[in-house]
Computed example of a mutant assay.
Amino acid sequence: MNIFRLAGDMTHLFSVLVLLLKIHTIKSCAGISLKTQELYAIVFTTRYLDLFTTYISLYNTIMKLIFLGSSISIVWYMRHHKVVRRSYDKDQDTFRHYLLMLPCLLLALLINEKFTFLEVMWAFSLYLEAVAILPQLVLLQRTRNIDNLTGQYVLLLGAYRALYVLNWIYRYFTEENYVHWITWVSGIVQTLLYADFFYYYFQSWKNNVKLQLPA
């Protein structure tokens, strides 16, 4: 494992911890898209179907369990916790996220590394993760005023994917026959979706003003 992969994993983990901190400590999910969280739960469920059939390493298994368990628990809290769910911006979080799933599934059936159930589900999870942030970004544009924890959560998610892109570049030049076009294209698309958010986040940081996205 190289430094870019490790940094990407830790950044991803920190993004989850920031979101859980907001939900458990502040008892609020204001500014967080339930639609995006549901998509992430589906992403990790379909990606980690091999969790109990293929062992890679203890580190790999632990990280899979953390991301799978945390994504499901976040959805549960937002839907069923009597205090947390009251802060959910249901009227603003109206992105039809289910419309993203069918194209991703069809693409996975057409473009995959091997036409087996696990490989198709793996490809589906990559395609879906690439666009899963869209409901969250749309919600932030609608609400405009973004609290610090929500901004940090989205920033860390984008940074995690950007670090993974660096990881792929590093592995391409240091490992023989390292080519994974599905992973690369999906990851680059996902990273590009954060570009606008990155710009406004660093503008707000540089000018020491509250983060706002244009409507």
Rank of each mutant, 00 (worst) to 15 (best):
L149E: 10
R142C: 01
Y164V: 02
L139V: 09
T143S: 12
R171K: 15
R161V: 00
L140Q: 07
L155I: 01
L139R: 10
P135R: 05
A159V: 11
G158I: 06
W168A: 08
T150E: 04
I146S: 02
Q152P: 00
V138M: 11
L149K: 12
V138C: 04
E176M: 13
L157T: 05
Y170P: 02
E176Y: 14
G158N: 07
N145V: 15
D147T: 01
I146P: 01
V138Q: 13
Y153E: 10
A162R: 07
L139C: 06
L137K: 07
Y153V: 07
L163D: 00
L156E: 05
G151C: 05
R144F: 00
T150P: 01
G151N: 05
F173N: 14
T174E: 13
N167Q: 11
N167R: 03
Y178A: 12
G151P: 00
R161N: 03
L140K: 04
L137H: 04
G158E: 09
L166S: 08
Y160T: 01
L156D: 04
L155W: 04
I146L: 05
Y153Q: 08
E175C: 12
A162T: 09
L166V: 09
A162Q: 08
F173C: 10
A162C: 09
R144E: 00
V165D: 10
Y160V: 02
L137W: 03
N177T: 14
R161E: 02
L140C: 05
Y160E: 02
V138L: 12
R161D: 03
G158H: 08
E175V: 09
Q152G: 01
G158C: 06
A162K: 08
F173E: 08
L149A: 11
I169P: 00
G151F: 10
T174Q: 13
L137E: 01
F173P: 09
E176Q: 15
V165Q: 10
L156V: 03
W168Q: 08
Y160F: 11
F173T: 06
L149N: 09
N148K: 15
A159C: 06
F173Y: 15
W168D: 07
T150W: 05
Q152A: 07
L156P: 00
Y164R: 09
R161A: 03
V154P: 00
Y153G: 04
Y164W: 12
T143F: 01
Q152M: 13
T150V: 09
R144K: 15
Y153P: 00
L156I: 04
Y170F: 15
G158Q: 09
R144M: 05
E175I: 07
Q136W: 08
I146K: 03
D147S: 13
Y160D: 02
Y153L: 06
L155Y: 07
L166H: 07
T174Y: 11
L166T: 06
N148W: 15
P135Q: 04
V154A: 06
Y164A: 06
N167F: 14
Q141A: 06
D147G: 10
L155D: 02
N148D: 03
N148E: 10
N177I: 13
D147Y: 11
T150I: 01
L137P: 00
V138I: 11
P135G: 04
Y170H: 15
I169C: 10
L137S: 04
V165Y: 08
P135M: 07
L137Q: 03
